[in-house]
Design a protein around this nucleic acid. Structure first.
Lengths: 295, 295
DNA sequence: TATAGTGTGAAACACATGGATCATTATTTC
DNA sequence: GAAATAATGATCCATGTGTTTCACACTATA
């Protein structure tokens, strides 16, 4: 499904030498070849977040006479790919039979995909919404997730930090993670993430918080999780995988959805917060587009 | 590869009742659905040997608001078929969006599900395997992921720690994260995780490691990511979501698959390591099945 | 044969498209 | 720090777009 492979490779090869805007355009073209073939240049430009003129410039930069040629090549590739569907599936089957590791990987990914799809069931959605609502009403959100759930907790907190200032991550060096709860009030909510086996530390802190009147909501793996008894709201996510360990991918997805729901609730404020974050990070030179020069 | 089957069937059903010109247009549309999606109406009309107005009339005859809708449906069909394997899943997304338009959460989850399914394409699987192989051959594995990628890096490291002792997480308080590289050798490999925007610190550390002869493999978001130039192997994962921020769910899934492939490689050793970990954590009272009693 | 009704083609339209130009702004380079 | 150069954004233009309108031709019925 690539436009005339050589063109695609050419874009990749010349990418590093392009200007920022050109790179942004090129990246979109690489990642959405179908759109290039199917919609107008102006629309592609809009989707890519660049000026229409930039798309023309990209085409010229690649040595093509104009944007029309760029689209023509993508269209040709799409025409081909459409019919070659059966061939592709066959290729996949062949390779699968050759190698075992691919099977493992593919099987696992398909399983995860199915698990996420399953989270769309009405009951899950209802729980997601209710949890988001509860978080929304909080003055502060304390985020707690130890051991395997640390990744999810941290990521939720990270995104919430970009979105505003209400999130407090209950973790830290030297075992001081719980100290932030010192000034917790009933106006606050704690998001607890834990899957089986449930970390003792998580349970203890959660219960302590509850005794302080803090509302508890949780992301956990079962209706019989000990967290359920503590929580006002809970979202359940599958953790089974055919590997040796439990998967956290659905839990992370759930946390991202929660972030999204919270962000969506007050779009103007979200946008403002993101812009602030952008400026801050820009001043700190946090991000770079290329490999930085060192000496 | 048919436009929204129902539309196609509708054309067939109404075909007999059409006038001669309309039939000629309809026949061409049925036989060349890709062209309808890819070229202008006037061009389709020319190819079909009818007047431009006839194409408009055909669309209206089918109950559509105009020709644009006819093309849009063909384009949607082509988009699905184009990516081949993920088509089935994608269709579910479309159907889903029809049903509950207001349901952000459901839409987002289905999108993520589709992205994971897409990772099963042969190219991705090949890259996953190659990356796992490279990691397997390493004496030590340094794991680097800053900012948003921290969650993925940490989780990979955490699982690897349960599986053995080869993993070193390049992070730590007080900005000492990179210090672990002091004794890195060419026998080691660094797993770098970074998505756009790429953290400067990540790029610098990765390049430093490379200069020390450490092999680099990466999980990143594009073929034109600056990490690709540094890496022996790279796995690409989508990060787009319809929320304000990029999603890390596919990246986490990829890291879990990598862990799984590594674990699978030497099952006996893996099992032994896991048992060791179990015993250790048991002695520390790390986990509890119920809400612990406190006083 | 006259006539109402339908199908068809040609032209006109309002608008969106890709491309080009030029002023302004960043970024180098000296 | 100034000059030169490249990159970017805004505007304009000729062309192509989908649609509508209207006149004409054809058909079927009385």
């Amino acid at each position: 499904m690539q436009p005339s492979n050589s063109l695609r490779e050419q874009i990749i090869a010349q990418y590093d030498a392009m200007s920022a805007q050109l790179q942004q355009a090129a990246r979109y073209v690489l990642e959405h070849p179908e759109e290039v073939a199917l919609v107008s240049m102006r629309e592609v430009a809009r989707l890519a977040g660049v000026q229409p003129a930039t798309m023309t410039r990209l085409a010229k930069y690649l040595g093509l006479p104009g944007y029309d040629e760029l689209r023509a090549q993508h269209a040709a590739a799409l025409r081909q790919g459409g019919d070659g569907f059966a061939a592709k599936v066959r290729q996949r089957v062949d390779e699968g039979s050759e190698r075992g590791a691919s099977d493992t990987a593919s099987h696992m990914l398909q399983g995860l995909s199915a698990q996420l799809a399953k989270l769309c069931e009405p009951d899950s959605l209802r729980r997601l919404e209710a949890t988001a609502d509860r978080l929304r009403s909080a003055r502060k959100v304390y985020v707690l997730g130890l051991r395997s759930s640390h990744a999810v907790a941290w990521h939720f907190h990270y995104v919430m930090t970009l979105l505003g200032e209400r999130s407090v991550h209950l973790d830290g060096p030297g075992g001081t993670g719980g100290d932030a709860l010192i000034r917790a009030t009933p106006e606050d909510v704690m998001l607890v993430i834990s899957i089986k086996p449930y970390a003792t530390g998580t349970m203890e802190l959660a219960q302590l918080a509850k005794e302080q009147g803090v509302g508890i909501v949780s992301i956990t793996d079962s209706e019989v999780s000990p967290l359920v008894a503590l929580s006002e709201q809970a979202v359940f996510c599958p953790t089974e995988s055919d590997s040796f360990f439990h998967t956290l991918t659905p839990a992370l997805a759930v946390s991202e959805v929660l972030c999204s729901l919270l962000a969506e609730f007050d779009r103007p404020k979200t946008l403002e917060a993101l812009q602030q974050a952008d400026e801050h990070l820009l001043q700190l030179n946090t991000y770079s587009e290329a490999i930085p020069r060192r000496q």
